[in-house]
Structure formats: structure tokens, C-alpha cells
Design a protein around this nucleic acid. Sequence first.
DNA 1: GCCGTTTTCGGCCCGACTGTTTTCAGTCG
Length: 569
Amino acid sequence: MNKKIIINTLERIALFLELQGENPFKVSAFRKAAAALEADQRSLSEIDDITKIKGIGKGTAAVIDELMETGESSQLKELEEKTPKGLIPLMKLPGLGGKKLSKLYQELGIDSVDSLRTACENKEVQKLAGFGAKTEEKILKELEHFGERSERHPIWQLEMIVRDINDLLSSILEVKQFSVAGSFRRVNEMSKDLDFVISTESREIVKEKILKDLAVKEIVADGDTKVSVVLNIDDAINVDFRLVSPEEYVTTLNHFTGSKDHNVKMRQRAKEQDKKISEYGVEQPDGTVKTFNSEKAFYAHFDLPFIPPTLRESGQELERLEEIPHLVTIDDIVSDLHLHTTWSDGAHSIQEMGEALIDRDYTHAVITDHSQYLKVANGLTPERLLRQRQEIYAFNDENPEFRLYAGTEMDILPDGSLDFDDDVLKSLDFVIASIHSSFSQSQDKIMGRLYTAIQNPYVHMIAHPTGRIIGERNGYNPDVPILIEWAAEYGKILELNASPYRLDLCVEHLALAMEYNVPIAINTDAHAIEQLRYMKLGTEYAQKAWLKKDLVVNTWSRKDFETFIYKNK
DNA sequence: GCCGTTTTCGGCCCGACTGTTTTCAGTCG
């Protein structure tokens, strides 16, 4: 029996109990049991007494035992027979939860989108206790475009919107402080909506200005402290604004940054000290409410180090506190090893790129334009590569405190060969190998291509190892655990491409690479100076994998970097 | 359903908003 199946079964039981309108604490008990099992690092065979795990008791252990013995859960089976599957998608309708759906099913026999629509149209729903005409209207309206609105938005789409909203909020005088919160602040790949927390003493004015200057399609909620709107852009996006006083700002930001699990763990901790956390502050045992100037002070109040938003996920982070000081941050980064210029498909010259890198206080970087195969990107022939190197070294002569290295982002061709001969590669300081073509080849073929690159003594790094674009395409589906083993064996770097479109490798694979001590380079792959900012996103994303700074190549000094790149020369 | 070194019963994170009520339940984050 696979652990994943058990976790899924427990979660499914919770879902069905919820649809039955069961006691919410009972529902969450099943969810907690699933989460506890998932958080436990051991495999099933390594766990001798499952009820020793906190959150798993007699009832949930019985489900697990039965699953292990028979492969099935009679409790889930019974629930599935009792509850129609058509109710599950209805849980997604705003305003409908387990209680209301249960009532609709029990009293009107509603078990699908269609029967719900018919019942609303016949005005049967408003007759039920707890429902009314408004609820019925709202359900009908939601049903009109049910399933159209995409559930989750990719980080690259939201990043642009966040920048626009940041500009708007910066321009409002009455706004004292503000920040994006929610899963976007935690650097999740996908988010359902955007949350902003705003500190102001003039809520009404700020609210008015936001609603006036933003392209608002619909106002979803409009209360004292909360405005919730749907933006009028192609892909409707929900944005919540929380308006609070300057004193409350930090605790509100913390609350709406979440995650939910992190907040629950923090509140439990507070409770042990007889304190109470809410978005407005921390209520002390004597009833007074304490507020904070910074999140650092907030965590210090509970004898905790500052926990970066990126780590606030499962609640497990509270048990890994001693690792936090070793994690990579933007302040540790001294180089960028994957950059394009006007020599191939970049927007800026070597000179412009170099100066922008110096402005960022980097000590070194590598220019890695595309290779000749990539004709659409104006890829470089060996001859142009030679001329480019002269320009790079000329820049170094004028800027002795900084160093640009001559590199390439070389294509691994569809037939499995490399785009440059060893003689050419040998002459370069740094060689990246990447796949940009024939994504649909079999996994064997893709792995063969990657193996050729990994084995080559002059290749230093594999860029964007899976080729994925978040929310758009999965890439070329390599067997990443094997790739990681190869990288460890041949001493190669794997990239964390920091572009919000890619974030490739993903969190799970970064964590696996760290187990194998494979060095990781966080690179922007910038095709223009503005894109150098992606480095911050890259380091934050790396934190989600608990990546240690020592393993991140861009934190290495120029001397250590040179030792690595010249070791086979 | 789970939990307990002030507890084996009575809590379970906390509060805003909405729509239904006429003091509150359900939903949401």
C-alpha cells in the first residue's frame, strides 16, 4: 500500500463528510490525520505504531489499517454510495459549503449543476430555511460562468499585475505602508487570487482611489476593512485589499500572508503562552493587545527567529528553525551565470549588461548567448563567439574590480549531439548546455541527449533542466532524479532558472538535488536589464526548497568559482 | 474524530462579511 493512496483516502473521506454537513471538527480531524501522515518523513513500513503520530487516533488508524489489509476503505465506500459525486464540483461555487449543499441535497434532491440551476430557476431554493432570494440569485449568477474562470493563475501573470498595483498604491499619499500578501508573497507557482495589506488612517479615501484607478469589473465585497474586486482583464483575477491602521499593519500582513497551516501553528503556540493572535495584534494574558513594528519583532515576541514568508507553508517550518540562517538569500548572491546580450536575442549590449551587473554589486558574471543552432535567436557561430570574447575582455580591462566571463548557452541538438566541438568549448570560461527543441521525443531520447552533455568534460551546467513553463507546458519530461544522480557523479551544476515563467528546477527537485550535494546556480537568464530583478524571485523560490547558501554557485567568491570552472583545463 | 503534566469532557485559530435573521449561522481566508 502506497502512502499517497492513504493520504488521498483520508482527504476524500473528509470531503464527503463535509458534503454531508458533518461537524467541521470531525472533518478537519481527517484532514489533519492526512497532513500528519504526509509530514512524517518515514515510509509506511518504518512506522510501527501509527497512532503514536499526533493527529492520528483510533478512528483514522482503523481506516489506515483497513486500507493496508484490504486496499479499500469501507467508510469511504459507504460515504460514496450515500453522496452523489455531482455535489463535489458544487463545493467550488462561492457561497456554498458543506452545510448548504447538504441541505440542498437532502431537501430538494440537488445532485448536479443542472439540477441546482433548475431548482433556482423554479424559485425552490429561496423557500429553504437559511436561504433567500438573494442567495438564489447569486447562485444563478455564479452558475452562468461556472468553470470558465480559471482556478489558479501562474506567478508570471500575477507578477505583472502586482507591479501595476504596487505603482498605484505608491502613488496614493494616504497610504503609509503596503505589501502584497497571500500565496504570492510566499512565492507559490500558482495563486487563486491576490491579497494586499494597506496601512492608512484614511480608509475611505484610499478605498475610493483604488476603486477609481483600478480596472474593476465587479466589486465582490465592500466592508470596513476589506474591499474585494474582480479585475477587468482577459483572465478575471480576484484582488482583496485589507485596509488597517498603521499599528495593526504588521499583524494583519502576517495574518494574510499565511499560510493557513502556519497561522494555525502560530496561534497554537500563542495559546500555550495564554496569548491570542489575530490580525489586529497579540492579546496578552492581561487582556491588553500588543502590536509590532516589524514581522521580525512579531516572531521575536514568541521567541522565534524571523521566518521568511517563503517558508511559511506546512507548519513544519517551526521545527526546522536552526536551518534558517543557512538558507540562501538575495544578499548572498554575487553573480549571475546565465545572461543574453544583443549578440544573440538579448536587448542590451555587453557594455550595458556589464554596467547593470556592477550596479547590483555583483563581483562577476557570465555572458552566455545562444549557439549557432538557434537561428531564430541569432545564435553565435564559433567565429562570432571569438569576436564576442574580445569585447568581453575589453570590458574587463576597463572594469578591473569586476569580471565578466566568456560563456555560451549551447544547444543540445535533437540528434543528441552538441552544437559546438570540444575545441570550441575548451576555449570558453563557462559552458551551459540546454535543450530548446524536439520536446516531444521519448524520455529515453531526451535522457540520452542530457547524458551526452553531462558527460562532456567542458560542460559546466545544465540550464532549465525540464523546459517547463509554469501553467503552460510541462517541458520535455526528463527523469530528473536520474539527472540529479548523473550531475552528482560528473560534478555538474544544475540550474534554478529564476524567470517567473520557468522556476526550473522545481522545489521538490531542488530538495532532492540538495540531498545529493549537487551545486545549484540561480540564474535570471536575463534577455534585458530589467529581468536581472528575477534574481530575488529565484532566491526566494530556492528558500522553499530549504536550499543552503553553500550549495548555491552564485554565492561563491570569484576565486572559488574559477577553481570550479577551470578544474578540467 | 483527536487530544490532555491545570483536562477523559469540552474544547478544537480567529475574525469579517453576507444574508438571513431579530441574535445568528454559514462561508471564507
